[in-house]
Amino acid sequence: MVLLEGKRQMKLELKGIGKEFDQGNGKQVSVLKDVSFQIDGELIVGILGPSGCGKTTLLRIIAGLERPTSGEVLLDGEPIVKPSPRMGMIFQEHALLPWLSVIENVSLGLEMRGIPARQRQETATKYLELVGLQDCASSRSYELSGGMRQKAAVARALSLEPSLLLMDEPFSALDPQTRAQIQADILRIQEKTAKAIVLVTHSVEEALILSDELVILSSRPGSVKELIKVEIERPRDRMNPQFLEMRETVLAYLNGGKQ
């Protein structure tokens, strides 16, 4: 299985992202304020922040699903103004189309790109194998467990070979065991496919298990409070003293302390 073909360094830049919503009564509420950071290369970057700090909005702005009120997002130097297949998104809810089989879901993007049926089948099968769902190719999404659905969503996001994967609390609805397992899968997949990943999560542990770097946002309006490099050796052990210490540090930032 060759997955690293045509791989190139990607660069994501966020420049002064601000977002205001109209509350409907003419009042503007500011959700994000002057968020800037950049991601160079195939890193996993976790975005953490208190609830309501606009982390999901930030991810949606990166995805091009929403437009920022100010600032811009650049992917390899090009501004993102609408959704782009150069990014794959994994939603909180799997968002698989229930009238299609798993493999049809995974190959839908390829179909719209005009890739011939046989090649679609091959590519889709390759990514289903990667996430371990080759035996469920013809199942419907509602026949799968929660964890399998998210895996199928991962395969779908990978099928168009994006350089960046965006994940919006993708494992929050899963039970802890499934969660730990799919986190391990993500790390394995990331290593094999060399994707950069931006992960929004509310779980400090999850962020520390997965991320190379952390972006910690302040409470509303969200702005970058701290950028942290997570330099714990992999595979990471939740009980490792270094891990626990890091966890304390991050929690302290999130709870408003530690300037």
């Binding site: 699903l65 782009s84 297949p85 009238w99 996001a157």
Partner: peptide, 25 residues
Amino acid sequence: QSWLEAVSMMGAGELNLIRKVILPG
């Protein structure tokens, strides 16, 4: 909405959204 967003992330335009998501959905 999440179906529409997932498929627009694949680069689908309005016509494909109607054909592939809205009509079958």
